[in-house]
Structures are given as structure tokens and as C-alpha cells.
Amino acid sequence: MNAPSPATQRHVFSVLVNDEPGVLARVIGLFSGRGYNIESLAVAIVDAERSLSRITVVSIGTPQILEQIEAQLNRIVPVRKVVDLTRQGATVEREMALVKVNGSGASRMEALKVAEAAHAKAKDASPEAFIFEITGTAGEIDNFINLMKPLGLIETVRSGVLGLARGNKTV
């Protein structure tokens, strides 16, 4: 991914969509077709009764591009609401990762210590490897993964960023 140039900013968008076939393709196609960045993407149904899905997408761009992203998302018919969480104010941002680390040999104890310090939980432990679950900001997860690298990082999977506005504000 390109490093953000000074004029660009990182924004988290919440997109409420009708849960219908193709809706995710429309959203992603918009980003690829217009050359916008996708830093992270997370999507799931949040209200099955109202067939509502919520997409959290993180993008990097100039203020003009970020404004365009919001406007372009709003043109998609099954999009019910778009909120630029970052522009709107303080948010809670969390991401989860599962991190598989070598569990054999001398680094075994060290891996457990690092995990404990980072509040990561071992979800699987075998003589050969651990799977740690860690939840935090994207930066905290980056840090954790970097610490695990010298100890024998095997595999990583990340959920993508989720975000909610602080206080009682809703989308």
C-alpha cells in the first residue's frame, strides 16, 4: 500500500446497506473503478429482520477525494446511509487478528510473555504452534505482529477495522 502523502488523511466510513445480492460488489467496484484506496474492509449483517448490513471501510485520500467517496457511496441505490466516522468526531476503532506463532523451542515462553503483555489470548496451543487472538486498534495489532516476527510468526488473519462513534451518536 502506498504511504499517505502529506495532503492525504485516513478516514473510517460506516456504510449501512440493504443486504441484497451484489451490494458488496457495488461498493467495492466503486472503489476500484474510481481508483480510491481500500485500507480495510469489514462487512456483516447487523439486523437480519430489516435485512441491514453494515460495511466499515477505511480509505486514505485527500479531503476532496474523501468527500467524493461519501457522495459516490450515497449514489448506490441499496446504500441506506453513509457516515464518515472520522469527520464526524471521536470514534472507537477496533480490529481483531488471529496470529499463529511458532510454539516450539526456546521462543515458546517468550511468545507467551509477549502475548500476555499485549492482552492476546491463546486460542489454540499445540507443541508446535499457538494461535493468539488479539483485539485492538490497527496500530496495536501491527505492533503485536512485529513483536512476534522474530519469535517465528507463521500466519496472520485480520478482521478489518470496525468503528463506532463515541457517545450516544448513531449512524
Binding site: 467524493q68 457522495a71 449514489r75
Partner: peptide, 10 residues
């Protein structure tokens, strides 16, 4: 179309 606003010219 709101997306026409500030797309190329502010």
C-alpha cells in the same frame, strides 16, 4: 447529483 459537487472543481 451531490457527487458532481467538488468532484473536479471546488
Amino acid at each position: 447529483d451531490a457527487s458532481s459537487i467538488n468532484k473536479t472543481v471546488v
